[in-house]
Design a binder for these strands. Structure first.
Lengths: 227, 227
DNA sequence: ACCTGAACACCGTTCAAGT
DNA sequence: ACCTGAACACCGTTCAAGT
């Protein structure tokens, strides 16, 4: 970033590659993200990507998942601005101390994580089967463990609560993405059978509201000793 | 199935193709399921598959998802036996009346669905972004709507409850699949930071038990009017 | 109706080469 | 160090042809 741009330096960087890959996924779908198309979008030969991700596409996928998981990263409108060194003023590294109550920290994380997943819902299939031991994932886990500990949980209860919270968010997002517009196409074929589905099929539910309500109920249930 | 086997009839059928595809997915992973490999496993030319799935691989994926979703289908040990016409004696079509209480019906569906997803966890990425308006999915939805109606819910509350239940199962399964063995690799890199993670990282949670407990809590919370 | 065989337009990745 | 260009072993899918 300091030196000049020589002939064979297209200004490629891992961040720029990830951002462009996400633009393709969001705009055209995961299946259309190919190394050659990615190269074209970056105005570079496809094989140049391998210099930044030597292990190939799988490593790029890992990086994309971590990028989305890192909900605390500052985001520009085009996600390409590099001017994001001003977030807390108290900590230099980004590990800012958060002195809000435990439930607000969890609420914020859940809503931010859901928003990130919805924003890049085309990348959702990448999240399955990818081990969550990245920096960003561990940061989120630490946040959750600390919050539930502050709420009074101990030991395995903390682990269970964090599992339930993460499962809730991903499950809710997947249901949201899968079910978009289910009500429209179905009413034709299901006259006699599926009476309840036919009857309730027209109902639409406010997804944001439903997510928020379910989150509150879950947090209550997790920290009240009934589970 | 009635006529004899002529020269150019390898005994291919949609069911046999789906079963073999799932065997490849379960054994080698989704990425290694290619039309050519599938043809080899079926001892047939790859292009023969297109006669049963004219729309190609995407249609095959749809069929695989529906196959897994249909948890009420009778299963042989090798899932290749065709002798499955004896399930209820009262209904011929498979739409057997279930006179158990609503909560037991939901419990059974949730545990069966989880088992099916875990059994074919390699196919999980296929479930995202695939509209759930198949026969099997509608049958499951009808089961859930009817049960929650019997539990006393009405209108949008029924829809929300069914959404929450489905989200719970898929979210729990994905977390289970993702998190397998997280505890092992992490303890190395996270000395100072991530104190809670380091401290709780060795704890293992019984996934079956956790799923059952969470399911009971969810059913209670959904049908007690607190959400 | 059901399957084959060759062909086409892609794909991920390797490797030697350029600057 | 960073990128190019050609090459290799694959893909999914189409299409004409066989029986």
């Amino acid at each position: 970033m300091i030196g000049g741009v020589s002939r064979n330096n297209a200004g490629l960087s891992a961040d720029r590659i990830i951002t462009e890959a996400l633009r393709i996924i969001d705009g055209q779908g995961l299946r259309r993200l190919t190394m050659r198309r990615l190269g074209d979008a970056l105005e570079v030969e496809a094989m140049a990507v391998y210099h930044h991700f030597p292990l190939g596409k799988e490593q790029l996928f890992d990086a994309i998942v971590e990028y989305i998981t890192d909900v605390s990263r500052p985001r520009g409108t085009d996600a390409e601005t590099d001017a994001g060194a001003e977030e807390s003023d108290t900590e230099a590294d980004g590990a800012a101390e958060d002195d809000r109550p435990w439930d607000e920290r969890l609420r914020t994380w859940a809503h931010d994580y859901r928003a990130a997943l919805l924003r890049h819902s085309g990348a959702l299939p990448l999240f399955i089967n990818r081990r969550p031991d990245t920096e960003a994932a561990l940061r989120a886990l630490e946040l959750q463990y600390a919050a539930f500990a502050e709420a009074g949980l101990e030991g395995a209860d903390i682990v269970r609560a964090a599992s339930a919270l993460e499962a809730y968010v991903t499950g809710a997002v997947i249901r949201e993405v899968r079910g978009e517009g289910l009500a429209s196409a179905q009413s034709a074929a299901l006259d006699g059978r599926f009476g309840h589905v036919a009857h309730l099929g027209e109902l639409t539910v406010d997804a944001d509201q439903a997510f928020g309500d379910g989150l509150e109920a879950l947090l209550r249930s997790l920290t009240s000793g009934t589970v």
